[in-house]
C-alpha cells in the first residue's frame, strides 16, 4: 500500500467504516430510549462548535467535541427545566442557525460550514481517523458492557432502586459516548450522513429483527453495506459524500421494508389459500 493510496482511499474509507459500524449500535440504544433526535442535536451542536473553534483559531476537532459533550452533560439539567420532547429539537435549531450564521458572516469558516453539511469524508485528517477508531472500539466495548443496564433501565426502572444500585453513571456515560461519536462523525460524514446512520439501520432492525442479539448485528451490517456502496458511488460519480450516503441508507431501508411487507403479505395469502 503506497502513501498516496493510503491518503486518498484507505484513510477516508476506514474512518467512515468505523462510524458506519459504531453509529447504528448507538442508534439502537437511542431508539430504545426514544432519543434518536439526540443524533441531530449532538451532531449539529458539534458542527457549531467546530465552526466556532475555527473562527477563534482553535482546533476544530476539539471545538466540536467539547460543545457536543457539553450539550450531553447539560441534558439532564436542561430536560428538568424544559419538556423532554422539546430539548433535542431546540438544540438542533440552535446549532443549525448558529453554524449557518457564522459561515455566512465569516469568510474564513464558510468552507468548513459547507463541508459539515455535505460531509468531507475524502479530506479526513489523521487525527479524525484516530478519533473514529477510538469511538468505534470504545463504543463496541462499552455498549457490550452497558447494554443490559440500558435495557433494564427502560424496561424495569424499579430494578435498580430495589437492588440499591445506581444506573445514572451508565446513562450519563452513554450520553457522553453518543455525543462524542456524533461530533466526530459529523466532521467526517456531515450532519445528515451521521444522522442517517443513527436513524435508518436501527429503525429497520427494530421492525425486522426477531430479537435484540440479531438487531445488534443487522443494524451495523446494513449500515456498513450502504456506506461502502455510497463510498464507491460518490467517488466515481464525483458527488458530495453526505447526501449519497443518506440516499443509499434511506433507499436500502425503504426497499427492504417494502420487500418484507410483500413477503408477509404473500405468507398471509398462501395461508388463506391453504389453511392446512
Amino acid at each position: 500500500m503506497n502513501e498516496l493510496s493510503l491518503e486518498l482511499f484507505w484513510k477516508p474509507y476506514l474512518a467512515g467504516a468505523c462510524f458506519s459500524l459504531c453509529l447504528p449500535l448507538l442508534g439502537l440504544y437511542l431508539r430504545l430510549r426514544r432519543e434518536y433526535g439526540a443524533a441531530l442535536a449532538y451532531g449539529q451542536i458539534g458542527a457549531l462548535g467546530a465552526v466556532g473553534a475555527l473562527a477563534l483559531g482553535l482546533p476544530t476537532l476539539l471545538g466540536g467535541l467539547m460543545t457536543s459533550l457539553a450539550a450531553a452533560s447539560g441534558k439532564h439539567w436542561l430536560s428538568r427545566r424544559l419538556p423532554e420532547s422539546g430539548l433535542f429539537p431546540l438544540l438542533f435549531l440552535l446549532g443549525w442557525s448558529g453554524t449557518l450564521l457564522l459561515a455566512a458572516n465569516l469568510p474564513a469558516v464558510e468552507h468548513l460550514g459547507q463541508a459539515l453539511f455535505e460531509g468531507q469524508l475524502y479530506f479526513v485528517s489523521r487525527e479524525l481517523l484516530y478519533g473514529a477508531l477510538t469511538a468505534c472500539l470504545l463504543g463496541a466495548v462499552l455498549l457490550r458492557r452497558w447494554g443490559r443496564y440500558l435495557l433494564l433501565a427502560e424496561l424495569y426502572p424499579a430494578h435498580f432502586l430495589a437492588r440499591g444500585q445506581s444506573v445514572w453513571p451508565v446513562q450519563v456515560g452513554f450520553d457522553l459516548l453518543a455525543a462524542a461519536a456524533l461530533a466526530l462523525a459529523v466532521m467526517c460524514l456531515g450532519v445528515m450522513g451521521a444522522f442517517a446512520l443513527v436513524f435508518a439501520p436501527p429503525w429497520l432492525a427494530f421492525i425486522l429483527a426477531p430479537d435484540w442479539r440479531l438487531a445488534r448485528r443487522v443494524a451495523p451490517a446494513l449500515a456498513f453495506f450502504a456506506y461502502t456502496l455510497a463510498f464507491v458511488l460518490a467517488l466515481y460519480g464525483d458527488q458530495p459524500f453526505g447526501p449519497v450516503l443518506t440516499l443509499a441508507l434511506t433507499g436500502i431501508t425503504l426497499v427492504l421494508l417494502v420487500f418484507s411487507a410483500l413477503m408477509r403479505r404473500t405468507k398471509i395469502f398462501s395461508r388463506n389459500e391453504n389453511p392446512l
Partner: peptide
Amino acid sequence: RLALQTQGLPPVAGLPLSGAELLALT
C-alpha cells in the same frame, strides 16, 4: 436481594426483544 413487579407491562411495543432475552435481563 429484592425483586419488584409493578402494575403495567414493560414498554416492549416495537422493540426487537425476545422472551428469552427478557428473562436473561433480570
